[in-house]
Structure formats: structure tokens, C-alpha cells
Amino acid sequence: MTPDEEWGLIGKVAIVTGGGSAGDGIGNGRAACILLARAGAKVMVVDRDLALAERTVAMIEAEGGTAVAVSYDVTTSAQCEAMVADAMSRWGRLDCLDNNVGIGSRGSVVEETEENWARVMHVNVDTMFLTCKHAIPAMIRSGDGGAIVNISSISALRPRGLTAYSVSKGAVIALTQAMAVDHGPDGIRANCVFPGPVYTPMVYAKGMTEQARETRRKASVLGREGNGWDIGRAVRFLLSDQARFITGQVLGVDGGATLVGPSRAS
């Protein structure tokens, strides 16, 4: 397969956190890994569960792409530093970072425990802070600037009873925009994608009733659910040279769900 030159990703190096998916399913991270590899990037697929990352790499290698599976715990600064050093020593540069790691929550502030609140912020916000903290200097050293996409959520803009999660995903937007301003002069672009009702392994892993799925479909004005590929294509676009004047944006891939805000299962 010949990579398409117009993305400007041939020979570039990308780190994708949360790049594994359960089984052979296509999650947001896995889709982005596959699409970045198809565009010619070398992809470091990071997952806490190495086997899931290895499955993503096997899919990429089957298509003739270049990728490596690694396991780092991105909730610690030392592991994020080691992850970036790994990419730099392996491939000599770093150009792109796609942050997918995150966990959900349920309940209002009254119901939420302090321990779980702290855990949601730690996993959903600190990981993005720490990966970017170490990736940005490496991107600058690589000489061509860099591009970051952080995955936020429709819940940041249309909260529905997942309060800690909503707050953490709102923080992801503010963090991303602050980085876009702070490091724009360094040639670093930073954007968010917020998925709407997409049907991915993370969503269906714990089981979802057909009724809940139908409610989610109807939450989109297009009347259908999205999937990991929809998110992956948005991520590839924003990380590529096709978006080289776009920074600080919050791109909804939600079938228009945020336009009307109807009830939806969460």
C-alpha cells in the first residue's frame, strides 16, 4: 500500500495513548493508529494492556505499516517521560500525539465520592498534562513543530449525569486551548475532538441494551451512531498537514447531537 503524500505524515512519528481496543473491535485510538500508519506515519501504540496494543500493531503490520506496541502507565510523569524517550530513541523524532486515555463516571456531585472524583481527574486530565509536558519539548527538538489531539467528550458541553467525567473533559478543552496559545509560537498545534454517540468497544464492552443503543442513535440529528473510524478520521485530519493552520479547535464528531441536546442514555 502506498501512503498518501497529501497528509504530510510520511516518515513522521506519532504516539497514540489508549491505542488498544478490546478484541478485534475498532475504538477511537485503534482507528487513529491504523489511519496514521496508512498515511505513512510510524506509530507508537501505547496501552496499559500490552496485548491490546499488540493487536493494533498486528492489524497495522498486516497492511504493511510501521508500528510498535508498548505499555506505559501514563498517569505518572516518569512513565510519560520514558514513553517519549522510547519514541525518540527508536525513531529519532516525535511529531504527533493523540491522547485517548480516559475513564467514565456516574452521578452528581452529591453522589460522587472524593476518591473517585480525584481518580477521574487523575486519569482523564493529568494524563493529558503529563504526556504533553514531555512530548512538546521532544516535538520542538524534532524541528518541524508538532500536532496534538486530545479526546474530549460531548459530556463536556452537554452534561447528563456523568458529572466528574464532564468536568474532566471540560478541563481537557481548556488545557488544549491553553497549550495552543502557549506553544503556537513553537509551531505546536493542539486541538480537541469530542465524540458524540459513537459505538466503540469501550461503550459496548460492558454490554448495552438495544434500547439504549437506539436512544443514543436518536440523540444525533443524523439519526445514526458513529464509530471509531469517524473519530480516527478527524484525528488524522487534525494531526496532518491538511490542518496546519488549525489550532485550539474543538471539533465535534457527534452527528449534530450538541445542536439540539435531546435526552440520551449515557
Partner: peptide, 9 residues
């Protein structure tokens, strides 16, 4: 079609 799930953005 890459943006098939993007509307109203």
C-alpha cells in the same frame, strides 16, 4: 465522507 458524522460544527 471522512467527516460523515460531523454536522453543525
Amino acid at each position: 465522507d471522512e467527516s460523515g458524522y460531523v454536522t453543525g460544527a
